[in-house]
Nucleic acid binder design. Structure first.
Length: 832
RNA sequence: GGACGAUUAGCUCAGUUGGCUAGAGCAUCUCGUUUACACCGAGGAGGUCGUAGGUUCAAGUCCUACAUCGUCCACCA
């Protein structure tokens, strides 16, 4: 069958994907007969089940798929494992918004009904996401598809919780937490965002009996002050340190102790700070040190609690205004200044955060526990460690390598300053905390207690708790998983864990390094006593053509991957994101860029078309056509300089591309393939193949087609990881037996790399280019055959007469000596 | 306030352990439909690699300072 004139991606892509999927080749179990020794695993970062794929996902999927396809072709046991994340808080927010539009709320529906609704919503999104992942060409193993809130993974989560609880690494306690009054939930430290705002800095005295004035932007929290802190070296205030005052602050009695704290900056405000242990992280530390009373002022609804007189039940801002009015009328307000400060807001709904004390569950980062895995203990050097210590060690020691390397610093900094991780959330959608209460008793377990009267904790777990287990929870045996009551037992009886863990590469965007990557390291080192992955590859942000982050709120800046795939083909989209980009760097994407790579796919296609059309009447034996895998370079013998040159070039290409892929230089590898295809193979060798006797029926001609076929087949294999659809389609057109996806990755044949041939041919290229340029400058008719004389020191130029004549449109004569010359290249003299 | 990254042709970016006469794509200009491809071919123009020093036989690449942009972290009441 003949290839059509142009490559029309949308006519082929879905069918090709179906072929891959039906072949079962993406499931490593089906390729066992090849006897691979190495395994290669990527747990694909699960997209949130809230929406559809955007270009950021496409970039990630592409890089992951390039690695997977390359490794599969190398013969490694390759697993690309797909899945979705339930994204607790994000999903609940979206569903709640939908309910609000319909005039109802989760509270009106009740927990059960709400969860059912959310489940349906998630199911719908999951199937959209999966189809889009297919559209992007991901060669993942759908038989192992996972979901963070599946029954299986939920059980893993409960078991992990129980184990950590038993080890004392999970505890319940009252601590100041970031509280979002809108979500009515806690937030982890890194789920808090900051927004600059203009604020007023009020300077006032609590009362006339208290000697010091303080400055604050939040006077309403001062209702809960139990101390005033000053710098111990501040001469103004030294005499007050240690004294306690009973004051009346806007009608509310306060007992204030003056304490000394080194952190207090005497230059700022009045140099005296009101300490509010219940509603400030910094103040709560001071309170702990100084044994201060913690007095709650603000409730979980964001309103002033009862017991504060006329301020009770007011929203914080209303209370603030009332308090300022009162201070003014009492003559206590000394100053109010406009300043800029940062407001902490919820990363999901952008509501102002209230730090407040609350009873929550935490993961202890600095508590010692014992390692059990002898291999890890040996490498680490001791048995006792903390989650923080072992996680720092994993990257410092090189057990985990981060690419680009400079992100390791960011990781260390974050890890070193990590506080205990608050994991309970007051949400409905998510993993319910596996703790039950009865009177004053508490029971923690993976199953609910047998006897009656126990009530389960109302809260759910932080969504990152379950995704932290992703690399291995997805690999645990799923058959009869309910029978396992012990996590260790389950791990031991899971062949996939043995075969595929630790995973090879974690490929994701750098913004998720803390949220997710760091937590996988923490949790996996704890439960499996091994690293979750050996390498972390971080890609950058995909920006619009002006370098701005694409954002849903500005739809005009967004490039929709599915739309682009329809228009230009998935291969073009993949190439446009990966080529000319290095790890960690953000990349700018534009439709124009994608169109450029559509042209490349078409170029590749048309080289195939040329080969097909020309070999049809070349009477090559079946063995020489593209129908076999006789792709070893030993089967071709080079007869001409051009043969030697292109064979040398492709072997160099194999070497370099392989090396680049091994070292995560995807952009560079892609560019080399692009250059070779267009500017070496198409522009030169294909053109030469058209020239008699190269393109004729003579022996040289037939041989050059054999070489062309060999080069092209090798190239298709090399390009396949980057542009899987077009290469697979061409492979199919040429009637090859099996799919390209499992073809053997080409091997470099060092003997065919010949510097001399490359150098000689470069000179011929240079000569042809120089003649063309001279023609143009001298305004020669394009079709006119020019007679030229060349004086050359050796036989090289003479031996390439046919090529030079045809490609430069000349009739070349070699002479011994030239008196005058029009052109000089190296030691060649040319006369027109 | 701290850390990290970027700064290379009009635009978007590559450039691996220093070896470069600094590359590509797009855009632009000239010419051309030659037996794959106009989603094409040929040729041209366009750069003191942010600035100032330093190391070196050799610096886009390494070091120091500065400037501009970006990202992350912390957050001072």
């Amino acid at each position: 069958m003949d290839l059509p004139k142009a490559y029309i991606p949308k006519e082929y892509e879905d069918k090709i994907y179906k072929k891959w999927e039906d072949s079962g080749y993406c499931n490593p179990d089906n390729l066992e007969t090849r006897g691979q020794a190495r395994s290669f695993t990527i747990s694909m970062p699960p997209p949130n089940a809230t929406g559809v794929l955007h270009v950021g996902h496409t970039l990630g999927i592409t890089i992951q798929d390039i690695m997977a396809r390359y490794r599969r072709m190398r013969g490694d046991k390759t697993l690309l494992l797909p899945g979705t994340d339930h994204a607790a808080i994000a999903t609940q927010n979206v569903v709640e918004k939908m309910l609000k539009k319909e005039g109802t709320s989760r509270h009106k529906l009740g927990r059960e009904k709400f969860l059912e609704l959310t489940k349906n919503y998630v199911e719908k999104n999951k199937s959209t996401i999966n189809n889009q992942t297919r559209k992007m060409g991901a060669s993942c193993d759908w038989s192992r598809e996972a979901y963070t809130l599946s029954d299986k993974l939920s059980r893993v989560v409960s078991m992990q919780f129980k184990q950590m609880y038993d080890d004392g690494l999970i505890y319940q306690g009252t601590r100041i937490v970031n509280w979002c009054p809108r979500c009515c939930s806690t937030l982890a430290d890194d789920e808090v965002e900051y927004k600059e705002q203009s604020a007023k800095l009020y300077t006032f005295k609590y009362s006339n009996v208290f000697p010091l004035a303080i400055a604050t932007t939040r006077p309403e929290t001062k209702l809960g002050d139990t101390a005033v802190a000053v710098n111990p070296n501040d001469k103004r205030y030294q005499k007050y340190i240690g004294k306690t005052y009973q004051v009346d602050f806007v009608g509310v009695p306060l007992k204030l102790k003056v304490i000394a704290e080194n952190e207090i900056n005497p230059e700022f405000g009045t140099g005296a700070v009101g300490v509010t242990p219940a509603h400030s992280f910094a103040d709560s530390l001071m309170a702990e040190k100084n044994n201060l009373e913690v007095k709650k002022v603000i409730g979980q609804d964001g309103k002033i609690l009862a017991g504060f007189g006329k301020y009770s039940n007011l929203k914080t801002k209303e209370a603030r205004e009332k308090i300022i009015e009162k201070l003014k009328s009492d003559g206590l307000l000394e100053n109010q200044a406009d300043i800029k400060n940062n407001l902490s807001i919820c990363y999901r709904c952008h509501t102002e955060i209230e730090p407040l004390p609350s009873l929550q569950w935490f993961v202890a980062m600095n508590k010692e526990f014992a390692l059990k895995n002898p291999a890890l203990i040996k490498k680490y050097g001791k048995k006792e460690t903390t989650l923080k210590e072992i996680s720092l060690w994993a990257v410092k020691s090189g057990e985990i390598k981060i690419i680009p390397e400079y992100f390791a610093k960011t990781y260390f900094h974050w890890m070193e300053n990590l506080r205990d991780w608050c994991i309970s959330r007051q949400l409905w959608f998510g993993h319910r905390i596996p703790a039950w209460y009865k009177n004053n008793e508490i029971y923690v377990g993976s199953d609910k207690p047998k006897n009656s009267g126990w009530v389960q904790d109302e809260d759910t777990l932080d969504t990152w708790f379950s995704s932290a287990l992703w690399t291995w929870s997805t690999l645990l045996e799923r058959k009869n998983f309910e029978k396992f009551n012990d996590l260790k037992e389950w791990v031991k009886n899971s062949p996939d864990i043995k075969n595929f863990h630790p995973t090879s590469v974690m490929e994701t965007m750098h913004d998720i390094l803390f949220f997710w990557v760091a937590r996988m390291i923490i949790m996996t080192l704890y439960s499996l006593n091994e690293v979750p992955f050996k390498t972390v590859y971080l890609h950058g942000m995909v920006c619009d053509e002006h370098g701005k982050k694409m954002s849903k709120s500005r739809p005009e800046t967004c490039i929709e991957p599915i739309e682009m795939s329809q228009k230009y083909g998935t291969d073009a989209l993949r190439l446009s994101m990966v080529l000319s980009n290095a790890a960690g760097n953000s990349t700018r994407l534009s439709e124009q860029k994608i169109a450029g790579f559509r042209n490349f796919a078409n170029k590749l296609w048309n080289i195939g078309r040329f080969i097909q059309l020309s070999t049809n009447n070349k009477q090559l034996t079946t063995n020489d056509k593209l129908t076999t895998d006789s792709c070893e370079s030993s089967v071709v013998s080079c007869k001409t300089l051009a043969d030697k040159w292109i064979t040398s070039r492709i072997n160099n290409l194999i070497k370099e591309v392989t090396d680049d892929l091994e070292n995560f230089r995807f952009g560079l590898a892609g560019e080399k393939l692009y250059d070779f295809t267009w500017h070496e193979l198409a522009d030169w060798y294909v053109e030469i193949a058209k020239i008699p006797p190269y393109g004729g029926s003579a022996e040289v001609g037939q041989n050059s087609y054999k070489i062309l076929i060999f080069i092209y087949k090798t190239l298709l294999k090399l390009v396949h990881p980057f542009a899987p659809f077009v290469t697979e389609k061409i492979w199919e057109y040429f009637g090859n037996g099996d799919l390209l996806i499992i073809e053997k990755w080409p091997q470099t044949d060092e003997k065919k790399i010949t510097g001399q041939a490359e150098q000689d041919f470069e000179l011929i290229k240079e000569l042809i280019t120089a003649i063309r340029s001279w023609r143009k400058e001298n305004k020669k008719e394009p079709k006119e055959i020019l007679k030229i004389q060349i004086a050359a020191p050796d036989k090289l130029v003479g031996s390439q007469k046919e090529i030079i004549d045809k490609l430069a449109k000349v009739d070349l004569e070699i002479v011994e000596k030239l008196v005058d010359k029009d052109l000089e290249i190296g030691n060649l003299k040319i006369k027109f």
